[in-house]
Design a protein around this nucleic acid. Structure first.
Lengths: 178, 178
DNA sequence: TAGATTCCTCTACAGGTGTAGAGGAGGAAG
DNA sequence: CTTCCTCCTCTACACCTGTAGAGGAATCTA
């Protein structure tokens, strides 16, 4: 699908160069398409940004169904997969920051797995599920952000390895604990 | 100081419009300076970005000295002040993301209070201070990020209020616990 | 096969952006 | 007062970006 080729290229671009690198022509080049293609599918830049964010949300939706018998483990595996898909996750941070000044983007990103995590935390019987859920999500979000963006990048075990999953699982368990 | 006027305007701009809004002329306008001023002080865009990040680091350095008698409380107050200075913190996230593809920026941002937090955690006698410090920092970073950027913005109590500080303090205490 | 329709490519253009340098105002040094 | 120097403002220009539309190729319909 042409649209997906375009939006996938957009994701790579944003991960590598930031939102500033997201221009119609740059996407054409990155995707190996003739000049003007991106502009034809997404006439305005606003449309391009929205397409990019929609694609991100779609890709993330496919990611995971949590396993009720191994909550911490399945969450850890999801987190690890997000570390592995470094560019996608970086692009997501850029998108979230962008949503700060373009609220339309927020609705596109709602109902992602991250929202599910909050819901999950609520079900685990904390005394104050609202806050516990927020703290839990914050912790996971922070863990990812810290590893990918903070502290001179890539702290901790190599993503995609069993050690990485184990390390993340420990952290998730700690966070789930009341 | 002219340079500070310029870089302060840059920070506002980035917070409000993202890195894409950071152009020489936009800074001139935002700072109410005659066109060309920013370009005179920061000839290239790279220089402008570096100036902006340096200013951020400087401002943050002034922020806090942790109180040894009330570790959680003083950290909570710092976090709260970062929530209050919303634009500065948003600009910081943009800068961190930018540092992902421009490593020179990382060295400018090193030795910020956030690094101190890691060091602090190490001193609190966890069995694995390295990881505990990382988790601690991740949690705080995530808490901030979640409140400011994630989840449709501003969850939790109004920043700057005693309730906000109390809420943060609870979270910090939980995170400090082994 | 002929015509209609969709999809794609190319080209155009007005504005914005990065960067450079000429020149002036005003203070410092002699 | 004259000369020099620093700091600032203005103008210039090549290039990039967003956006539009004309036309052609490919596909579908009858």
């Amino acid at each position: 699908m042409r649209r997906d080729v375009i939006t996938d290229a957009a994701i790579q671009l944003v991960a590598e160069q930031g939102m500033r690198g997201l221009t119609h022509r740059a996407v054409d080049r990155r995707a190996g398409l003739p000049e003007g293609s991106t502009s034809a599918y997404f006439r305005t830049r606003k449309a391009l940004v929205e397409g990019f964010v929609e694609r991100l949300a779609d890709l993330e939706r496919l990611d995971v169904v949590p396993d009720p018998d191994d909550v911490a483990g399945s969450i850890a595996r999801t987190l690890d997969s997000w570390l592995v898909e470094r560019n996608r996750t970086l692009a997501r941070y850029a998108a979230m920051l962008e949503a700060t000044h373009h609220p339309e983007l927020k609705s596109i990103m709602a109902h992602s797995p991250r929202e599910q995590a909050t819901a999950l935390a609520k079900m685990l019987g904390h005394t104050d599920p609202e806050r516990a859920g927020a703290h839990f999500t914050a912790f996971l979000e922070g863990l990812l952000f810290y590893r990918l963006v903070g502290a001179g990048s890539t702290v901790g075990p190599e993503p995609g390895t069993p050690e990485s999953v184990r390390d993340l699982k420990d952290a998730v368990e700690k966070a789930l604990r009341p």
